[in-house]
Design a protein around this nucleic acid. Structure first.
Lengths: 345, 345
DNA sequence: GTTAGCACTCTGTGTTTAAGAGTGCTAAAC
DNA sequence: GTTTAGCACTCTTAAACACAGAGTGCTAAC
């Protein structure tokens, strides 16, 4: 059904359309890609490919463009990944060698590198709650009636909230509470912070019940939320450069509005199964607003365990063969960098 | 030179153009705004207004549109501010009544309210370094060789960095250093954190010089930067709704790219003189990329002292009479809310 | 000073035309 | 049976053109 020549023709159409953004005709293929057959033959093949739903015609007298299914077939069965140039690999690695202490920064760098090298929008979602554990919890007095709740995780993430406390509580009390909280929660994964655990800790306190309750409540607020993973974003304006969107501001608006919604991006990336790389093409995306986009995502690891996900969003007419190796390489480099900084625990 | 009738005509042109986005002709004015004179008379007035540089013609047979100077004249001498509706005032106030502890959140709310009510992009810049002082500095042990530097300011802002420390330093040492740092820096404005002060503190330490040096270095890094003020942004995509930009994606890109640059926004708002409200129309803006936009900004206060600035960016064809009262009211409400939370110090 | 009238200008729109690109089909060649 | 040349046909795009509509500026009359 899909013989070698059909694949060649489909490949030619995909490559040419990715390069030019213009529908591709049989003559163009015959001229530019040396398949050794005449335009007429290519036309016959194209008719077949259209029948198979792999390419389509914007209108009768135009060339063909790949359909979502066409891109899918290309990605799955035809595409040859473009090996990165040595200097490109070096460049990426250098960007991760700069001294970084906090995971936030690492992920910011990652999205920046990706969007820079691909010219698409880069997204990433921070360490999954299942893979991040508490390292230290501290209550610090700020002034009368106010304390700062501080949480440090094993990934270097620091979060804090201010809370009101009774005037009767002093610094020593707070320190004691901190000690207990840290002792009880250290090593616990964020997602394990369930009501039951909190209640358990709460009951353990004899005095200072009130402060403890407030602190636990805040902790729950911060970490027990579905999707509290941090979202990172870079190069969103690259969308505006894409010729398919130059003409239609409304489409651009939809996509940019989508990218502004952190929960949407989180869902996009968290859905990612545990296998390495995922390519979602056009309609394959659940989200309606990006059904003219492709999303490629990949997980990254800390000490061998998947702790997050990153990817890019661009038009379906995307340079898959180039983007995928970049993503893979960045994910590897990122994983290595993370493991180097935070080690295996 | 600018008699009453000329003002009326200019006003009609500005109002109509703001409302419709279409060039305004003499007939339209005569029909819609009852000035009691014929189109011909209005034409004569328009010729004068054009001579004065207050309006211009996109092309010979089109109506007139206000020039930047025309808007300027309108804003300065003609415009009547639209009083806010009671329910609008209530709405704004309610949004600031929700419980807020940190200044970041207050400013996020402010930009959200403004962009929501005006449909332009809202910007704000966080408390000026001259008005924010240190409240507490704390060094916390995280694990062997790592400590967390934590800074709390009088505006509730909390910042933190992780730093490497010699293994020999223990928790007690850190606490002692924290005490000294807090004692020495408390009440000091961020912008007063000069080399000399840091050196002075440094010399005071007998032992633990290394840790202290690192901590001071970090402090300097965080706070001594020109423009470390936080920048807030909301409703940037409203730009895409403006008809004058619907056609030209390139213009939109320039503006959105401008808005992505925090330093640019900071400069825009920090330039703001100490008087209340500033209106910069089109070319009056120093930044080239927003020379087709107007920027309106206003300061907000904490306990009577200006501590920051906020505003909106939109097309020069902006509803000044509505936007300005909204900004004024939000700034007042915000100032009140801040003063209520952080009080006068 | 104001206004009616009018010639003039320019844009925007719709229509027509022509060129160009591309197709599908048929019939001949391989 | 597959490939290809040839050709008629379709559709888009761009250019050319006409024309209605909006608006102006000027002049002369009120």
């Amino acid at each position: 059904m899909m013989d070698e020549r059909k694949k060649k023709v489909l490949q030619a159409i995909v490559l040419d359309y990715i390069a030019t953004g213009e529908p591709v005709g049989s003559r163009t293929i015959a001229r530019r890609y040396h398949l050794g057959v005449s335009p007429a033959t290519i036309r016959n093949e194209m008719a077949d490919l259209e029948e198979l739903g792999l390419i389509e015609q914007p209108h009768t007298s135009a060339g063909r463009i790949p359909s979502d299914r066409g891109y899918r077939y290309y990605v799955d069965f035809i595409m040859k990944k473009e090996e990165l140039k040595p200097y490109e690999k070096e460049y990426i690695q250098r960007r991760f060698n700069e001294k970084m202490r906090e995971i936030e920064q690492v992920l910011e760098y990652a999205t920046a590198v990706i969007s820079e090298m691909t010219n698409y929008a880069a997204i990433a979602v921070g360490p999954f709650r299942s893979r991040v554990s508490f390292k230290k919890i501290e209550l610090l007095p700020i002034e009368r009636g106010q304390a700062l709740l501080l949480v440090v995780t094993n990934t270097g993430l620091v979060d804090h909230r201010i809370l009101s406390i009774p005037n009767t509580i002093n610094e020593v009390d707070l320190r004691r509470i901190s000690k207990v909280l840290t002792a009880r929660l250290k090593g616990l994964a964020l997602e394990e912070l369930k009501r039951s655990v909190l209640d358990d800790i709460y009951h353990q306190f004899a005095a200072e019940k009130e402060v403890c309750r407030l602190a636990l409540e805040l902790l729950e607020q911060i970490f027990n939320l579905e999707g509290n993973e941090e979202v990172y974003l870079d190069g969103t304006l690259n969308i505006l450069q894409q010729p398919e969107f130059k003409k239609d501001v409304e489409k651009v608006r939809k996509i940019l509005a989508f990218l502004e919604r952190e929960d949407a991006i989180r869902r996009l990336l968290v859905e990612n199964p545990n296998i390495g790389l995922t390519v979602k093409i056009g309609q394959e995306n659940a989200a309606y607003n990006i059904r003219e986009c492709s999303v490629i995502s990949i997980n990254y690891q800390l000490g061998g365990e998947t702790i997050g996900s990153m990817g890019i969003i661009g038009p379906t007419r995307m340079n898959y063969a180039r983007v995928i190796p970049i993503l893979e390489f960045v994910a590897n480099t990122l994983s290595a960098a993370l493991t180097k900084i935070y080690g295996r625990e």
